[in-house]
């Protein structure tokens, strides 16, 4: 699994998958959360829309330029 949970922090490493979206959204719904995206190589659309919905604090932005723009847009659409 690409998403590692550590308390209120989730770290996405490598490519995330749609199968992780439900757990991720439930975790995000649980309160103030922080997410590290620095090592993410791909964010599945379902993961992107979880970020878009719950807007957790981004600790590190994706290193991948395309992903960084996608995440930025995801935060902007409801921001």
């Amino acid at each position: 699994m690409a998403i590692e949970y550590d308390g209120d922090l989730a770290r996405i490493v490598g490519g995330s998958d749609v199968a992780e979206a439900l757990d991720f959204s439930e975790w995000l719904a649980g309160g103030a959360r922080r997410v590290e995206l620095g090592e993410a190589t791909h964010l599945h659309s379902a993961i992107v829309q979880c970020l878009q919905q719950f807007q957790p604090e981004i600790v590190t932005a994706p290193g991948d330029e395309f992903l960084a723009l996608i995440v930025e847009d995801a935060y902007r659409t409801t921001g």
Binding site: V18, A21, A29, V48, Q52, A74, T77, T78
Partner: peptide, 23 residues
Amino acid sequence: FSQLTAPGPQPSDDAFDPHQCRL
């Protein structure tokens, strides 16, 4: 140029379904 948006207002957190694409 690329832009990601949502097709409508965001649902409430309770109504949010991560398996339903809203992009």
